[in-house]
Amino acid sequence: MAPFSIMTVGANLLTRSWSLFSTALTVRCSCVAPTLKNFSTTSGGPPKRPLTAYLRYVIEQQPIVVKQNPEIRVVDVVRKIALQWRTLTPEEKRPFEEASITAREQYKVDMKAYQEQLTPAQSAALAEEKRQKMAKRRAIRKKRELNSLGKPKRPRSAFNIFMAEHFEEAKGTTVPGKMKSLFDDWKSLSLSQKQIYMQLAEDDKVRYKNEMKAWEEHMTELGREDLVRRKESRRKKAATKKGKKKSRVKVLKAKAPAKGAAGKKSSDAETKKTPSSTKK
């Protein structure tokens, strides 16, 4: 049974793709792989992955919950279904789990048939696409981790501050329309009017620098040096090396006079010996 927190992580993703999920149940790749005439690594290519038992339950319950609660937000619909899923008994979950297992087995068969028809170039293209997707997922996971660890937000530019302040009252009914309107308004501002936002942006840079310094020190204390900026890490290492070098120089300088005195004594002794040897 998945924890509620894990279930709700995908709420936003589910809300954006109801149509995709609803068609995914009926349009499964139960036949052999598609022909490769119109091969594409982004669409019409390999069989689609089967849905999990939980997602099958979500798709089944979504229209029922919406009908019962017509004014509820989509994200709240998902949360409500997640709570329902948690209360189901193993027997009630079994039909969804069995359907998911059957779909996974069929997916393996379809995928094998599909891969057998690929050319080496197509296989390489799919491998590259998979690599890019994995890199994107790692980046998303990394961002979520940094947010959970309280990493400070990057400083905003002068225009971003202006945009946040005037977005609600901006002209336009869509986000791109509002953005264009705000950009035009920004260009029409005088330098003295922009100076206010430029100063706020400079203040935000100082805030970010101070917060990042404190945050990175805290991450180092937690043993998460991997999250510290490379530039900062290199700077600290360089400072450490510089300090060690200075220490060595001081030690050498301290030893140098003693060596000089010893050398002078030996040279004086040799000078004294030289006349006596000459007399002989």
Results as ranks from 00 to 15, higher is better:
residue 127 A to S: 14
residue 269 A to N: 14
residue 215 W to Y: 07
residue 65 V to H: 05
residue 272 K to R: 15
residue 147 N to K: 15
residue 245 K to S: 07
residue 100 S to E: 08
residue 262 A to R: 11
residue 260 G to W: 11
residue 35 T to G: 15
residue 207 R to P: 01
residue 57 Y to P: 07
residue 10 G to D: 09
residue 278 T to D: 10
residue 65 V to N: 01
residue 35 T to K: 12
residue 18 W to K: 12
residue 268 D to F: 09
residue 276 S to I: 03
residue 154 R to S: 11
residue 206 V to S: 12
residue 142 K to N: 14
residue 26 T to V: 11
residue 183 F to D: 05
residue 68 Q to N: 08
residue 4 F to W: 07
residue 254 A to F: 13
residue 206 V to Q: 08
residue 81 I to E: 00
residue 104 R to C: 08
residue 148 S to R: 10
residue 47 P to I: 09
residue 202 E to W: 04
residue 51 L to Y: 05
residue 270 E to A: 14
residue 271 T to M: 08
residue 220 T to W: 06
residue 103 A to H: 06
residue 180 K to T: 06
residue 274 T to N: 08
residue 194 K to M: 04
residue 63 P to N: 08
residue 1 M to D: 10
residue 74 V to G: 02
residue 159 F to K: 01
residue 23 T to G: 15
residue 257 P to G: 08
residue 157 S to T: 14
residue 111 M to P: 00
residue 144 R to I: 12
residue 200 L to T: 01
residue 48 K to M: 13
residue 101 I to T: 09
residue 266 S to P: 04
residue 206 V to D: 09
residue 227 L to A: 09
residue 221 E to C: 01
residue 204 D to H: 04
residue 191 L to F: 09
residue 108 K to M: 10
residue 193 Q to W: 00
residue 66 V to C: 03
residue 119 T to R: 08
residue 210 N to P: 05
residue 167 F to I: 10
residue 108 K to F: 09
residue 124 A to F: 01
residue 262 A to M: 11
residue 91 E to M: 06
residue 127 A to I: 01
residue 5 S to T: 14
residue 128 E to D: 06
residue 19 S to I: 00
residue 189 L to H: 01
residue 124 A to V: 03
residue 111 M to E: 02
residue 71 E to P: 00
residue 30 S to D: 13
residue 85 W to D: 03
residue 142 K to G: 06
residue 4 F to A: 08
residue 192 S to Y: 06
residue 216 E to G: 00
residue 183 F to P: 00
residue 28 R to M: 14
residue 87 T to L: 12
residue 157 S to W: 08
residue 241 K to I: 10
residue 265 K to W: 09
residue 84 Q to P: 05
residue 227 L to P: 03
residue 41 T to Y: 10
residue 192 S to L: 10
residue 5 S to K: 13
residue 253 K to D: 14
residue 68 Q to D: 09
residue 250 K to W: 00
residue 141 R to I: 02
residue 232 E to R: 10
